[in-house]
């Protein structure tokens, strides 16, 4: 009777042996056919990256440069292929961004380069690559990660875009400030129409969904911060652009509503521990536009106050808001032509672009700060659900 005695973990060297002819099967099962919403939900974050790296370690260990090259090429091409196929699915893109970054971190952490070994345990140092320097491949994988990041931003933008104007500008959560009579009765009867309307709450829920998906996938916290900053930039830019194009959005009460909405977004950041990621700062032009709707716009002193307050807005934007400003009741009046002239004169010497609308397609440059993992490769086990029984733990 053959008795299957499980090996102790310390006997493993954190490598996975595979036959050359199984390489295609490996990338198919692990990359192309893996469903982030199915099997992958229960995996340890970054598991596909660790598995691929452990296979790579074995190819390096047996000193087979061709095997190393083809595994890296197949991995990169498979990730590109799955993103081509399911690039509009946020979960897929987020999953492969997290795993590509983890793979990149592994290539650094186990490169043998002392700069990346500072936080390694002595056992982890024994697991460094022994034959090949993959610095050039690291660059290619970093380029791939940038591509995936840009795809993630596009994907996220496609989902957020239709919610922004409705949730940030049109929908009113503060009752009775708009000057329009409260419409309790009408609201109830038009509930079917309302179902298609996005509110600020829809935006906040969507932001939370993005955030929790990225956390689940083990995305580096520093990378999450960059994604959130980009999300806030898009929300701020789209909202401001619409305000600059719509007279009905330039009133005292809209200013109030926008400031309330911004405070809710800030509250969301605080709740997620993201107050220092630069996201709030991207809303500054919108915040100033909302303040501009609310301040007095009559005297020379008012003009001076406006000029010193609106540093994040261009002259074109300030003048546009003042021109569009619409009183909602009899206590207010339109901004006089003379007042707008005064503002223009005061801002004449500002060095800036004549730009009116913000560039909603702008993407901040992304970086992937090195983030080593404390996970011991020799302890990693492969769940049978991944269909990788042809890999041997070494």
């Amino acid at each position: 009777h053959p008795v299957n005695i499980p090996r102790r973990e310390k006997d493993f060297q954190g490598m996975l042996e595979y036959k050359k002819e199984d390489e295609l099967k490996l990338v198919k099962n692990l990359i192309l056919e893996l469903k982030p919403r199915g099997v992958a939900v229960n995996l340890i974050p970054g598991l596909p990256a660790y598995i691929l790296f452990m296979c790579l370690r074995h190819a390096d260990y047996v000193n087979d440069d061709q095997k190393v090259r083809t595994l890296l090429t197949s991995t990169i091409n498979s990730i590109k292929k799955i993103l081509k196929k399911r690039g509009d699915d946020f979960e897929t893109v987020s999953f492969w961004l997290a795993n590509t970054c983890r793979f990149l971190h592994c290539l650094k952490q186990y490169s043998g380069d002392e700069a990346f070994m500072k936080h390694n345990t002595s056992r982890q140092n024994e697991h460094c690559l022994s034959n090949f320097d993959l610095a050039e491949y690291r660059q290619v994988i970093s380029d791939l990660a940038i591509q995936i990041y840009q795809q993630l931003i596009k994907c996220m933008e496609n989902i957020l875009q239709p919610m922004i104007v409705s949730g940030m500008l049109e929908h009113e959560t503060i009752q009775g400030v708009s000057g329009v009579k409260p419409t309790g009765l009408r609201k109830r009867t038009s509930s079917i129409a309302d179902e298609g309307t996005y509110t600020l709450d829809s935006i906040l829920r969507q932001l939370s969904a993005f955030h929790s998906t990225m956390c689940q996938h083990g995305t580096d916290p520093e990378l999450i911060k960059q994604v959130v900053k980009q999300q806030f930039y898009i929300i701020g830019a789209v909202t401001l652009n619409n305000l600059l194009l719509r007279k009905d959005m330039c009133s005292w009460s809209k200013g109030m509503q926008i400031r309330y909405n911004v405070s809710q977004l800030e509250e969301w950041l605080r709740d997620k521990g993201l107050m220092v990621c630069g996201a709030k700062e991207t809303l500054e032009p919108l915040i100033q536009a909302a303040q501009l709707l609310q301040v007095k716009k009559k005297t020379d002193e008012d003009a001076e106050a406006i000029c010193s307050m609106c540093q994040a807005l261009t002259t074109a934007q300030i003048v546009k808001v003042l021109n569009l400003y619409t009183p909602v009741n009899e206590f207010e009046e339109r901004v006089s032509v003379a007042f707008i002239r005064t503002i223009q004169t005061r801002l004449r010497d500002r060095c800036e672009s004549p730009q009116l609308l913000m560039d909603t397609k702008m993407i901040y440059p992304v970086t992937f700060p090195f983030s080593p993992s404390s996970l011991a490769l020799e302890t990693i086990q492969i769940p049978s659900s991944l269909n990788l029984a042809f890999l041997t733990r070494v």
């Binding site: 090259r69 090429t73 091409n77 498979s78 043998g112 090949f132 993959l134």
Partner: peptide, 30 residues
């Protein structure tokens, strides 16, 4: 020490060049 051992630098193709080495040729062709 692992870190001081010389390793052979593997020259890498660019991302675009890699795409040309299509590993899924059979399956991709109509």
């Amino acid at each position: 020490r692992t870190s001081s051992r010389p390793r052979i630098l593997l020259k890498a193709p660019t991302l675009a060049e890699m795409e040309e080495m299509n590993i899924f040729e059979e399956e991709d062709s109509p």
